[in-house]
């Protein structure tokens, strides 16, 4: 199991586009991927768009803990971190 905290700087916090990219990325991997909000301690399946959209807070920034567990957990985590690093511009 690997886990990291990511900070979403996106202006719209978990805007639908951001959520869609996150879910699409998570869905490419076999590992279980969980997201937990550090703001309101909600937790959800990273492959569920409805779950991820539900995580959003009203703050301009959202802090999420990403937990990946499974055979490709390292790769999954790396991809998600890359997405955050690129500020979700990669999917454009």
């Amino acid at each position: 199991m690997v886990h990291r905290v990511i900070r979403l700087k996106n202006r719209f916090s978990l805007h639908a586009r951001t959520a869609a990219l996150l879910v699409k990325t998570a869905s490419r991997f076999k590992s279980n991927i969980k997201l937990a909000s550090l703001d309101n301690s909600k937790q959800t399946d990273g492959k569920s768009i409805l779950g991820v959209m539900q995580l959003a807070g009203t703050a301009p920034e959202t802090e999420l803990q990403v937990i990946a567990e499974g055979e490709d957990e390292e790769a999954a985590m790396a991809e998600i971190l890359r997405l955050v690093e690129e500020d979700f511009e990669g999917g454009k």
Partner: peptide, 18 residues
Amino acid sequence: KEHAYIADVHLLILEDQR
């Protein structure tokens, strides 16, 4: 591509296991 996410969100809801 930057607008395709509109359809993506809907597609992902259709795939949403929950």
